[in-house]
Amino acid sequence: MTPDRVVWLVSVLLFLCGLAALLLRRQLLAMLLGLELMINAANLNFVFYGREWSDAAGWTSALWVLAAAAAEAVVGLTLILALNRLAEPDTDSVRELEG
C-alpha cells in the first residue's frame, strides 16, 4: 500500500461520503456539509501531489480552493439562515421560491 494509494483511497471515500450526504440528506445544512466534504476531498489530492512532485501549483490550488469554499460556504449559510427564519428548511418544501 503505497502512500499515494492511501491518499487516493481516503479522498475517494471522503468524496463519496460527501456525495451521499448531498444526495440523501434533506436538511440544507447537512447538504452543505456534504458539499464541503467533497471539496476538501479533492483538496487533499492537491496537497499531497503538490508535495509529491514539489510543484508549488499544487499548494496554491489548494489555497484557492479553500478560499472559494469559504466564500461559497458563507453564501450558503446566509441562504440557510434566511430560509430558517421562514420555516424548517427542507428540500422538499423549498421547491418553489416565492417572494
Binding site: L23, R26, T91, V94
Partner: peptide, 13 residues
C-alpha cells in the same frame, strides 16, 4: 424538474 434538489444532484452525479 420538480424543484427537488436531491434529484437534481443525483442527475448531475
Amino acid at each position: 424538474s420538480r424543484g427537488l434538489l436531491n434529484q437534481y444532484v443525483g442527475w448531475m452525479a
